[in-house]
Amino acid sequence: MTRIYCPIEAELIRFVDADLSPEGAEHIIEHLSRCPTCSQQVRELRSLVEELGAPIGINLDVGAHVHDVLRSLDRTVAQPNRRPVIARLAAITVMAASVALAVRLVGLRYGSPAGTWQPRGSLQSESLSRDVGVQVFTLRKSPQPLRPGDTIAPDAALTAGFRNLGHEKAYMLLFAVDSHNAVHWITPKYTRVDEDPKGTELARTEAEHLLPTSVVFDGMASGPLRIVTIISPSPVRVSQVESLSQAELSQGSLARRFANAEVREIVVQVSNAYRGKAP
């Protein structure tokens, strides 16, 4: 049996970087045809290089940009010491960045969460409890359903899937309460304190659907994280939660306050040790 001697990682990196001589590259190609381990290494490196060079999908109104630049030239001439103003996004914008304002529907193809949706008893009469299912996911290589007791990183990307088998629309508020009792919104989009969005509309749909974007929380405290879902038959606004005290944010209190709504909660752990490594 012939033993395969693998090239060192630096050689594979130079190969992916197209920085080897033709002979060196040929040698690596020949090796890769026989070595699945190195092939995997090269695949990962190529994937990384592709990400680094991935085109950036920025919609730029070039005409407006040119206009702004020329106006800046005028301002510079008029006020030579003035620096261009740098727009700073408010922390709150970052906090809730990327939550979709409207839920547009999309088929969930990866790892069907069929077994993870909230149970519905077919013998029960029509109700939000029976008809509407919501599942929170973390995003890694594929959406991973978040279950009670799971541990996530403070910078985990979260999104949610849902379905509504009822005949009426439903509305969803989905937020997390961290160990410092800070409320972080998953949906609806809530990025400005002077706004008061209503719950995300859940249209009737027989298939599971995923919110089109994910959210990464800013300043998430480590420790237990309560993820609360309020599903209501009529719109409930963000302010109706934001105005509540710490005690009023408990599941029981929320259920009493929103008597017509379905209030659900799961508790997961947030760990700084998972930052950048795990969900």
């Binding site: 979709a100 409207a102 999309v106 969930l108």
Partner: peptide
């Protein structure tokens, strides 16, 4: 920071939306 690069979906949602998220 993560900002959504996904544009609002059209009336007919794309089946590749999950891919965009990932």
């Amino acid at each position: 920071r993560h900002s959504s690069a996904t544009s609002p979906l059209g009336p007919e949602p794309s089946s590749g939306q999950i891919d965009s998220l990932l």
